[in-house]
């Protein structure tokens, strides 16, 4: 990993030094030994703070939609293959301009969660060596996604009756405290005024009541259908441990099955809810 760290620092130094970018978004050592923090590097001297290790789990693309990064003319960003999927989503939806973002891609053998386990996104990873970037560091890592890993959590859900599923989700969603951490951390929750904050009319009740909790979590997953790149940031951020990725992955499975579409693959394609085919599945419409 250290050569990757050195590679990132070198490129960041160069870009910051020659004015290619105003700043570089990357990871640095966190307060605790086994954690990293996002960092905004503005000078070549600071570049040595950047690093890459198996604790660089977070997707930094979410900073592209926020100030001060959003307003910068040129910004560098360090990204794993999976993070770049979010960038592709943002490009598709015109939220960033390709010329403004310079990507330091890093090959990645996989990262770890806070508890030391391997996240599903790494077990199912098909972009250990990124293909969309400006510069790349690290030796090539072949991808061998574990068959079935991506949707394995859905099997238990599929096996339930609708009533059991509803009870399961009641149990989970009733916990929601409506802190919207899932939304804030999501690189693809791009609205400046979330539907949950619209009050005329108020489609989604704002109080943390089961009624509004259900609507909110449903709407969140719906609005990410065909857009979610499965970075797991929402689930990681959730303070009450709602298994949000189950919903997101269920949507990913639907979109793959119905429209043969996967989010974050190709910036030239249309997200599925922005297009249609004349021969889309019609079987369920009576």
């Amino acid at each position: 990993m250290s050569d990757r760290t050195e590679g990132i620092r070198e490129i960041a130094r160069k870009w910051l030094g020659d004015g290619t970018v105003e700043a570089v978004v990357g990871w640095e050592q966190g307060t605790y030994k086994d954690k990293t923090s996002p960092v905004l590097i503005r000078t070549p001297e600071e570049a040595d703070r950047l690093l890459f290790n198996e604790r660089c789990t977070n997707n930094l693309m979410t900073y592209l939609k926020r100030e001060p990064v959003r307003g910068m003319e040129k910004v560098g960003i360090v990204a794993k293959g999976c993070d770049i999927k979010a960038l592709i989503g943002l490009l598709q939806e015109s939220q960033v301009e390709r010329e403004k973002v310079k990507v330091i891609a890093v090959t990645c053998p996989g990262v770890k969660k806070d508890d030391g386990t391997v996240p599903v996104k790494c077990r199912a990873c098909d972009v250990n060596t990124p293909t969309f970037y400006d510069e790349i560091v690290g030796e090539k890592v072949d991808s061998s996604p574990e068959p079935g890993a991506r949707f394995e959590g859905l099997e238990a859900l599929d096996a339930m009756t609708p009533a059991e599923r509803f009870r399961f989700w009641r149990g989970e969603l009733d916990k929601c405290i409506r802190c919207y951490a899932c939304r804030q951390v999501c690189p693809l929750c791009i609205c400046s005024r979330c539907i949950a904050e619209k009050n005329q009319p108020q489609w989604v009740e704002t109080s943390p009541h089961p009624r509004g909790n259900f609507s909110w979590n449903l709407v969140r997953a719906y609005h990410l259908a065909g857009r979610c790149v499965e970075c797991e940031a929402c689930e990681t951020a959730c303070p009450v441990n709602i298994p949000l990725m189950l919903l997101n992955r269920a949507m990913a499975r639907t979109v793959k099955g119905a429209f043969d579409y996967e989010a974050g693959k190709d910036p030239e394609t249309q997200p599925p809810l922005r297009a249609f085919n004349l021969d889309d599945d019609n079987s369920f419409i009576l």
Binding site: L157, M160, P162, A163, E164, R165, F166, R167, F168, W169, F214, L218, A221, Y222, A225, G226, L246, L247, A250, M251, T254, V255, A258, F259, P272, L273, A275, F276, N277, L278, D280, D281, N282, F284, I285, L286
Partner: peptide, 29 residues
């Protein structure tokens, strides 16, 4: 209606995932 059909496709699966009884939801032309 083609755009609507895409929305239905996604939304009905989401409802089903959340345990809404799909007999209570119907789409027709």
């Amino acid at each position: 209606n083609y755009n609507a059909r895409r929305k239905y496709t996604v939304f009905k699966d989401l409802l089903a995932t959340l345990g809404i009884d799909m007999d209570r939801v119907r789409f027709s032309w």
